[in-house]
């Protein structure tokens, strides 16, 4: 969609450990990752630049992942339709239906199953 050769993935995750881990794993899947550490900066970055996919942690500072997802879904045209994969340790034990209600396309529970995450990334970045 945006560039030939690789896919652009925006990762909203406040833990640098997980950011790094995702970078390493998705490097092999031909993805170029951009990091955002809180919910507001995800929205800001996404408004200024096009991406193919967003991976969004639920528990984020400033603005949580569910609110950020809802806000992205309100954007007009293609911008509002970007695939969003939610990830979370779900410490608050929220019902999974709430993530989909907010507009996420998929949800993967932490600790992350890499095979599952990779197959979802492939599914949503396929031409």
């Amino acid at each position: 969609m945006t560039e030939v050769g690789y896919k652009k993935v925006l990762v909203a995750e406040d833990s640098s450990v997980i950011q790094n881990l995702l970078k390493k794993i998705l490097l092999f899947e031909n993805c170029k990752l951009t990091s955002a550490k809180d919910g507001q900066s995800v929205i800001d970055k996404y408004k200024n630049e096009d991406f193919d996919l967003i991976i969004m942690d639920i528990n984020l500072p400033v603005l949580d992942g569910l609110s950020a997802t809802k806000e992205i879904r309100l954007l007009e045209g293609d911008k509002g339709n970007i695939p969003i994969i939610g990830i979370s340790g779900n410490a608050k034990n929220l019902p999974v239906s709430e993530f989909f209600e907010a507009g996420m396309n998929e949800y993967v529970q932490k600790p992350l199953n890499y095979d599952e995450l990779i197959s979802l990334v492939k599914k949503y970045t396929a031409e």
Partner: peptide, 8 residues
Amino acid sequence: VLSSTINY
């Protein structure tokens, strides 16, 4: 929401 939750 129903189909995503069931699938999950």
